[in-house]
Design a protein around this nucleic acid. Structure first.
Lengths: 335, 335
DNA sequence: CTGAAAGCGCTTACAG
DNA sequence: CTGAAAGCGCTTACAG
C-alpha cells in the first residue's frame, strides 16, 4: 500500500480511503490512486485490515463432509452470495471424532471469521454451548434452531405432502426407510418420519412399526436386506418412501437386482431432488439446496451487520413434490 | 494473548513461544501457559501472526464449481491433509465470466493464502501469466502443467486401457462421446480421446470420425439426439465410451428410454468412478479423486516449505479399470 | 529459559 | 479533502 501511495503521490491514508470506496476522496486523487493500484496489481493484505477493524472479511462454514450432493449445492449457493458481499469462504470439514473434538477444543474459527454457518451438523449440547460462548455470529443451516438464526425447509410438511401423494395414488401400505449411519441429519429424519406418520393418521391408517425401517450399511448390502424384510411381511408395502434420494437410488438398485418392477409392483419416492434424481426418473420432494446456501449468506450478512437484532431470524424455504416415473397406483394384488 | 500472559504470569513472548510449540520453554512454564490458554478458550488471531510472519496459514483452492462429484471428492481429500498441517481451506469458486474476470483482475488470493491450488480449471494464457506474476506458489490439480507442480492422472493411458477392454470383448465399432460445454476439462477431453484413438490404431482399426461425438446440452435432450445419430449410422457402434461417468449416466437413461438393452445390445463405459457408478453398475475407469486432493496438499506443503525447489514437481496417480455390468461382448448382429 | 521492544500493513480518530 | 500518528495482536531478534 505504501508503494501505491508513493506512485500516486499521496499518503497511505488516502490510498486506504480510496480503496475502501469512501466518498471523501476527490475524483482526480481517486483516479490516480486507482491507476497506481492497478499498475502495481495491488491486492490488500486482509490480515492487516482485520487486525485493526476486528473484521476478517471471511465467513466460515462448518460441515460434516464435502462429498454429499446437498452440501456441494449449498456451497454453490453460498459462494456467489459471499463474493457479492466481498467475503471469503473458509471451509471446515469435520468428519471423524478426532477432528470433531479438535475443532471444538481449539475453535479455530473463533477469531478467523466474522460468522460461522453450521450446515447439516448435529451438535451435541456441549458443542452447542461451546459455540454459544464464542461471541461469533452463528447461523444454523438446514436445521431449525429455535431462537437462533436458521434457514431450513419444513421437513415435516414436505414428508406429509409426499405421503399424501402416495395415498392419493391409492397406496395403503407405505414403508418409510431411513439411514442409520448417524451422519447428523437426525432432526430431518425425525421430522420427515413425523410428517409421513401424520399423513397416514390423517387418512385414518394405523401406522405399522414393521413398515418403518432403519437401514444399516445402506451404501453396502444393507438395502438388499431391508428389501428382503419388507418382501417377507405378511402384508408387504406397495410404496416405499425413503428419507433421502441417495437412499432411494440404492433402493432402486436393490429392487432391480431383485427383479421387482418399479413402479409396476412398488412405487418409490425419495427426498431431496438430487442431481441424479432426474436422470433416474425418481419421484421426489425437492428442497432448494442452492437457495438454502444463498439465504444462509444473506442471514449471515444481516447478523454481522447489525448486532441489534433487527434481522429476520428464520428463513423457511419451500419444498416441492416432483412427480416422475417411480410412482404409480398400486398393483391390484399387492407386492 | 495478553490475557493468557497475565493469567500465567509470564510475558506475551513466552505465551507465543509456548503456543507455537518451541522447545525453548521450561516444562512448568509451558504447563502454566497451556492451562491459562485452555481456561480462557484462547484462539490465536491469525491475522496478527500472518502480518508478522508473512504466512497466512491458509491454502486457497480455485475451482470452476462446487457441485461436481470430482471437486467434492478432491476437496474431501484436501480437508484432512490441510488440517493435519495446521492449514485452513479457502475456497474460490469461479463459475461465470464476470466472476472469472473479477478474480484475475483483483487476485484476492494474492496475499491471503500461502499457496493456490488450481483445480480442473482451464486457464487462458493471459490468466496463466497473471497467476505466474503472483509470486505465490501454484499447484495444478487434475491437470498437467509442464514444469510446474502438478498432480494428475494419465488420462491418455487410462482411456487407452479402457478401449482395449472393449476391443478385448470383441467390439470393433466403438463410439466416443464427449461433453461440449466447455466447463474446463478440455485437456482431459483431448487426452482421453487420444488414448481411445491410440487403442484403435494399435488394434489395426481405422478411426471413424462419425464415431466421435460432442454432445451439446448433454444435461438436457442432447443425449437423445446423439443416440439417434449413432443409431442411424449405416454401421452403428456396439460400444459407447463416454468421457465422464456423468455423461454415461445420461447415456444410460437415453438408452433406457429408447428400449435399447445394456449391455445386451450396446456396452457402455464411463470414466471417473463417480459415487453413483457403483449404484448404476457402470463399468468405468476409476480415478482416485480423494487421493488427488490429498496429494495436491502434500505438494503444496512441500512447495511452501522449501522454495529451493527440491520437492517433487509432478505426482501422477494411477487409474484403474472397474468392470461392472454395462459391458459385455457385442451382440452377433450389431446394434 | 525469559522479557522488553520494534515492527508487520493496514485503519481510524484527530488535525488541518 | 488529505496527512501524521497511534494502535490492532502477534513474532522475532536482541539482551540478559
Amino acid at each position: 500500500m505504501a508503494d501505491v501511495a508513493r506512485r500516486a503521490g499521496v499518503s497511505v491514508s488516502t490510498v486506504s480511503r480510496t480503496l475502501r470506496g469512501l466518498s471523501t476522496v476527490s475524483a482526480p486523487t481517486r483516479a490516480r490512486v486507482e491507476a497506481a493500484a492497478r499498475e502495481l496489481s495491488f491486492a490488500i493484505t486482509r490480515s492487516a485490515s482485520s487486525l485493526v477493524t476486528g473484521r476478517t472479511g471471511r465467513v466460515a462454514v462448518l460441515l460434516p463432509d464435502l462429498e454429499s450432493w446437498f452440501l456441494g449445492a449449498a456451497l454453490s449457493g453460498m459462494a456467489p452470495a459471499l463474493r457479492d458481499a466481498g467475503l471469503e469462504l473458509l471451509v471446515y470439514s469435520v468428519t471423524d471424532v478426532r477432528e470433531r473434538a479438535d475443532f471444538f477444543d481449539r475453535l479455530p474459527a473463533r477469531r478467523n471469521a466474522d460468522a460461522l454457518l453450521v450446515v447439516s451438523f448435529a451438535l451435541s449440547p456441549a458443542e452447542r454451548a461451546r459455540l454459544d460462548d464464542l461471541g461469533m455470529p452463528l447461523v444454523f443451516v438446514s436445521q431449525h434452531a429455535p431462537g437462533r438464526p436458521s434457514v431450513y425447509v419444513d421437513d415435516e410438511d414436505a414428508a406429509l405432502r409426499g405421503t399424501r401423494h402416495l395415498l392419493n395414488l391409492g397406496h395403503r401400505r407405505i414403508a418409510f426407510l431411513q439411514t442409520a449411519d448417524g451422519t447428523g441429519f437426525t432432526w430431518s429424519s425425525k421430522s420427515r418420519l413425523a410428517g409421513h406418520l401424520r399423513a397416514l393418521t390423517e387418512a385414518g391408517i394405523e401406522p405399522d412399526d414393521a413398515l418403518v425401517l432403519s437401514v444399516p450399511d445402506w451404501k453396502g448390502n444393507g438395502m438388499a436386506a431391508a428389501v428382503g424384510r419388507l418382501l417377507s411381511l405378511q402384508d408387504p408395502p406397495t410404496a416405499l418412501f425413503t428419507e433421502t434420494d441417495d437412499l432411494a437410488f440404492r433402493l432402486l438398485a436393490a429392487l432391480r437386482d431383485a427383479n421387482i418392477p418399479v413402479p409396476g409392483r412398488v412405487s418409490v419416492m425419495g427426498f431431496d431432488d438430487h442431481v441424479m434424481a432426474g436422470v433416474m426418473g425418481l419421484t421426489t420432494l425437492a428442497q432448494p439446496a442452492v437457495e438454502i446456501g444463498r439465504a444462509a449468506v444473506h442471514l449471515a450478512r444481516s447478523v454481522i451487520d447489525n448486532s441489534d437484532g433487527t434481522h429476520p431470524r428464520h428463513i423457511v424455504l419451500p419444498t416441492e413434490l416432483v412427480p416422475r416415473g417411480t410412482t404409480a397406483p398400486p398393483p391390484p394384488a399387492g407386492l
